[in-house]
Write a protein that binds this DNA or RNA. Structure first.
Length: 525
RNA sequence: GGGCCUGUAGCUUAGUCAGGUAGAGCGCCGGGCUUUUAACCCGGUGGCCGGGGGUUCGAAUCCCCCCAGGCCCGCCA
C-alpha cells in the first residue's frame, strides 16, 4: 500500500473521522525544493484521508512570528537592526537586499511566490499566518497554561532534549521596545500581561492575547497542534532526532491539554552530489525555478514515488528523463494488483505504484492518462530541439499521430518547460543534439564506401529537390537504392554524418531544420 | 558522545511494517520492424539481497553483533 493511504488508515484508527494534516515552514528566505517534500507529504496524506472517506483539512502554517535569526548572505547589513524581530513585522528586501518599506512584509515577500509554485503542482492549502493566530488571541489560553506550568515544561525539555535551560528562561518571549525579542527579560506575569525589561533599559507589558511576543519554538509547535487540532504533521528528520522538537512536543502538547499527532519523520531531499539544501547557504534550486523546467506531475511523482524514509536526490539532469520515462510507463500501463499469478510482494508493489500514480496528479481524482499529453518527455525533448517554432512542433506531432487538432494548455506548457530546460545549464549534454559542420574522422571510419557514395549523391540530389520534410525523405529513399544500400544503411550513414552517432531523431526533419546550404556543405565535406 | 536512515543485478531501485520459490526499469548483447522522430516490439545477459550468528519447517524480511556510507542532535524540512 502507498505510504499516504497507509497513513490515512492509521490516522482513522488513532483519531477517527476528523483529520487535520499540517505543514509548517519558516519564511526566512527563498523556499527550496526540500520544502516541497514537507508540503507534498502532508498534502498527499490529506488526499489519502479524503479518498478513505474521512473529513480532512490541509493547513499550512507559516511561521511568520519567528524572528529573523541573523543577516543572511542575501540581505544587506541594514537587517542587523531587525534581528530578533518577527518576520511578519519587518520589511521585505529589495533586489539589493536592502529593506524596502514599500515591499510589504518579509514573510509575505518569500511566501507569495512559493504559494504560486504550490498552485502549479496542484496544492491549495489553507494558509495560516502564525502571527495572526497570536494577534487574534487564539494562542492566549495555551500561553497562560504554559506559563502556569513553566516548571513542568522546563523539566520536559531538559530531560528529553538534554539541554540545560538558562536560569532566566521563561516560556514566553515578549517583544521589546524595538520590536525584537532578543535581550528581553521577563520580570513578571499577571494574566494576560507578561512584564518585561529590554536591553535598552525600557520596560513594558506584553498582552498574551496579542502578537506582543511568542512561545519558544518547541512549545509553539506543541501548542499549535492543540489550537488547530492537528492530527498529522510529517516533520523533517532534524525534528525527528532523539530529543528533538518532536519528542519534547508530544508531552508538552498533552500537558497543555491536547492530543498530539503521532511522530512522523521524512528524509531530506538533496541536490545530487551537493549536500543538503538550505535556505541560507545559497545551495538552492527554488521550487519556482524547478517548476519552470519540470512537469508538475513529475515533481509530485518524485515525492509520491519515494518512501518517506528514503533520501531523494533531486537531479535536474538526465535523471529527469528516467523519472519521466518511469512515470509515463506507469501511467500508460498501470499495474493490476488483481492479475492472476502475482506473488504477494508483486501485488503490494502494484498497489503502491498505483498509489504513487494517483498522488502524482495535479487534481485529486483526475485520470492519470490525461497527464501524458500524447507525447513522451523524451520525444518532446527532441522535437523542441529540432523545431524552433512551437507551431512546427505541433505540425510534426500531428503528422506522427501524437496530436490531433490544437494542443491543450497542459501540452503547451510542457513544451515551454522543455524549452526552458533545454536552454538551462541543467539539460544533459548527451541529450543535446549537436549538428556536425563536417563529417568527422570517427564517422568516416564507421561508414562503408557505398554509404560514403550515398552521402555525396544525396548532397547532389538535395541541391535540386524541393526543400520540405516530405521531399527530403523521398529523396533519401530514392538515392539509397541507387547507391546499392538499403534504407537502414542509408539512415545510419546520415546519422553518423550529422550527429556522429548511428541513430537519431527523424532524419528528414533534422535536415529540413538545418537548411539546404548547411546540409550540402556537410554532406559534401 | 547520543540517535536516525541506508546497504538487493553495472546503475536506479521494488519487495522488509503483516517471513513462504529474488521482481522491475535503465544499461548492455542479439533479433525484428524492408520510410528509424535517441522510437517501437521480441528475446537474452546479469543478484552467496553488506558480513556473521540466532529464531523458524522456511529469513532480503524477525532478533543480536559487526562493517560501510549518508544524515540529525543551536535555527533549519
Amino acid at each position: 500500500m502507498h505510504w499516504a493511504d497507509f497513513t490515512a488508515e492509521r490516522l482513522r484508527d488513532e483519531r477517527g473521522e476528523q483529520q487535520v494534516a499540517c505543514s509548517g515552514i519558516t519564511p526566512s528566505g527563498e523556499f527550496h525544493i526540500g520544502h516541497l517534500r514537507e508540503i507534498l507529504s502532508a498534502e498527499m496524506i490529506h488526499r489519502a484521508c479524503l479518498d478513505a472517506g474521512l473529513d480532512s483539512r490541509y493547513i499550512f502554517i507559516v511561521d511568520s512570528m519567528d524572528p529573523l535569526r541573523r543577516v543572511y548572505s542575501f540581505l544587506s547589513p541594514e537587517y542587523e537592526r531587525y534581528i530578533g524581530c518577527p518576520l511578519a513585522f519587518i520589511p521585505a528586501p529589495d533586489s539589493n537586499g536592502n529593506p524596502d518599506p514599500e515591499a510589504g512584509s518579509y514573510a509575505d515577500h518569500f511566501l507569495t511566490p512559493f504559494l504560486e509554485a504550490l498552485g502549479q503542482i496542484g496544492v491549495f492549502p489553507e494558509v495560516i499566518m502564525n502571527h495572526e493566530t497570536y494577534s487574534n488571541g487564539e494562542f492566549a489560553a495555551k500561553i497562560h497554561s504554559t506559563i502556569e506550568q513553566a516548571d513542568a515544561i522546563r523539566e520536559i525539555i531538559e530531560s528529553i532534549s538534554g539541554r540545560e535551560l538558562d536560569e532566566n528562561w521563561f516560556p514566553y518571549k515578549p517583544l521589546g521596545s524595538d520590536g525584537s525579542m532578543d535581550g528581553v527579560t521577563v520580570t513578571g506575569y499577571e494574566n494576560p500581561f507578561v512584564h518585561w525589561t529590554d536591553r535598552h533599559g525600557k520596560s513594558g507589558s506584553a498582552d498574551i492575547r496579542k502578537a506582543d511576543g511568542k512561545l519558544p519554538w518547541r512549545i509553539d509547535w506543541a501548542a499549535r497542534w492543540g489550537i488547530h487540532g492537528v492530527t498529522c504533521e510529517p516533520a523533517g528528520k532534524d525534528h525527528g532526532a532523539a530529543g528533538g522538537s518532536f519528542d519534547t512536543g508530544l508531552p508538552i502538547c498533552r500537558l497543555l491539554g491536547s492530543e498530539p499527532p503521532s511522530k512522523m519523520v521524512y528524509e531530506w531531499i538533496q541536490v545530487k552530489g551537493a549536500g543538503p539544501m538550505s535556505s541560507s547557504s545559497g545551495n538552492t534550486i527554488g521550487p519556482v525555478e524547478a517548476l519552470s523546467l519540470v512537469p508538475p506531475e513529475i515533481v509530485r511523482y518524485l515525492i509520491a514515488g519515494s518512501k518517506m524514509n528514503r533520501h531523494i536526490d533531486f537531479d535536474t539532469g538526465s535523471a529527469l528523463f528516467q523519472m519521466a520515462d518511469e512515470y509515463e510507463r506507469l501511467v500508460a500501463n498501470p499495474p493490476d494488483s488483481e492479475e492472476e499469478g502475482l506473488s504477494k510482494r508483486q501485488k503490494v508493489a502494484a498497489v503502491t505504484n498505483r498509489g504513487a500514480m494517483k498522488f502524482s496528479q495535479l487534481e485529486r481524482g483526475a485520470d492519470p492518462a490525461d497527464s501524458l499529453g500524447g507525447v513522451s518527455f523524451r520525444h518532446l525533448s527532441m522535437l523542441a530541439q529540432i523545431k524552433s517554432s512551437d507551431e512546427d512542433v505541433w505540425t510534426s506531432m500531428r503528422a506522427s499521430g501524437h496530436l490531433t487538432g490544437e494542443p491543450n494548455e497542459s501540452l503547451s506548457q510542457r513544451l515551454t518547460r522543455m524549452r526552458n530546460w533545454i536552454g538551462s545549464i541543467h539539460f544533459p549534454e548527451d541529450a543535446r543534439i549537436h549538428i556536425h559542420k563536417s563529417i568527422s574522422a570517427e564517422a568516416r571510419a564507421e561508414i562503408s564506401e557505398e554509404q560514403r557514395i550515398f552521402l555525396s549523391s544525396l548532397a547532389e540530389e538535395l541541391a535540386e529537390s524541393d526543400w520540405s520534410e516530405q521531399a527530403i525523405g523521398t529523396t533519401i529513399r530514392e538515392v539509397a537504392p541507387a547507391c546499392g544500400i538499403g534504407g537502414r544503411e542509408a539512415y545510419i550513414a546520415l546519422y553518423w554524418a550529422l550527429l556522429g552517432r548511428n541513430h537519431g531523431p527523424k532524419a528528414s526533419a533534422l535536415l529540413f531544420e538545418i537548411g539546404r546550404e548547411s546540409v550540402i556543405a556537410l554532406l559534401s565535406s
